[in-house]
């Protein structure tokens, strides 16, 4: 078995007095696809937001490729990570958001290129070539010079995926990426994710409400309930054969 690329060790998170996560332990192996399901407010999104360094855990450790994400050594003491430390590790992780968060003042191509040029220091020609390839892969090769405001939600989300993919992260996070889409646009976005999942050595963590999709793509499904992982296992174990009552009633709402 290969070493995990991401490990959560007893991770807790509170917002004020509200305890959102109460001890999360999790291992993600390279190339593993994990789906996190659960009722809204159960803390699904918070898990991946902490991994993306958008929220700081209240307690516990998150290890990325052998490095403690939120802590660092300084003069032999363990202290809170500074921005430099976070930046060094964060490059392994990419994220696609529910609301796309494309840069409205840049064209589709610029959206994809900007970070590889300014963060990874790739030269402009190469960056452009890679971005165009990636945009063609998600089926938007003909929209390079358009602005995000001209695209449909599904197209925007595909651009957001190309923008994250072109950075070549080792772990890619998907935060309810189809929740803000019109129903008829969900299919095209899931199709792209399926494609990425198939050809990728990249690990993926998907927070999703698409049960059939989770069943299809994920190696492992976690059911998160009231801040703890209440059930985990292969997709068919969790979604089709679980005895957990809360999971059953949660699933029933999606199946009806």
């Amino acid at each position: 078995m290969s070493e995990p690329i991401v490990t959560f060790q007893d991770v807790h998170k509170s917002f004020g007095d509200v305890k959102v996560l109460k001890g999360i332990d999790l291992e993600v192996k390279p190339a593993e696809k994990i789906a996190i399901i659960g009722p809204s407010g159960s803390g699904k999104t918070t898990i991946i937001r902490m991994l993306m360094t958008l929220e700081e855990p209240t307690a516990g450790d998150i290890i990325v490729d052998g490095n403690n994400l939120w802590k660092m050594e300084k003069n032999g003491k363990t202290v809170d990570a500074n921005d430099k430390h976070l930046r060094a590790i964060r490059g392994d992780i990419g994220m696609v958001f529910q609301h796309f968060n494309l840069f409205p003042h840049m064209t589709i191509l610029e959206n994809c290129m900007t970070a590889i040029i300014h963060v990874k220091g790739e030269n402009k020609e190469k960056a452009k070539k890679h971005s165009i390839e990636m945009l063609e892969k998600v089926g938007l090769g003909d929209k390079l010079d358009n602005y995000p405001s001209q695209l449909s939600g599904g197209q925007k989300q595909r651009v957001a995926m190309a923008r994250a993919l072109v950075m070549r992260p080792k772990v890619m996070l998907f935060d309810e990426v189809t929740s803000a889409l019109d129903p008829e646009l969900v299919g095209e976005v899931l199709e792209v994710i399926r494609g990425i999942a198939k050809d990728g050595e990249m690990a993926m963590i998907l927070v999703t409400h698409e049960m059939d999709f989770a069943l299809d793509v994920a190696d492992k499904v976690l059911f998160l309930d009231e801040g703890v992982i209440a059930e985990q296992g292969s997709a068919s174990q969790v979604i089709e054969h679980s005895k957990n009552e809360r999971l059953q009633s949660f699933l029933k709402r999606f199946r009806s």
């Binding site: 990419g94 609301h99 963060v119 950075m167």
Partner: peptide, 26 residues
Amino acid sequence: DKGQWEASTALNFSTRQKWTKIIIPQ
């Protein structure tokens, strides 16, 4: 939008780049 800050963090921009490339132009 605060999503712009989050996207630029996710793409690993430095604080300075976030301001000059993403936030101020908007």
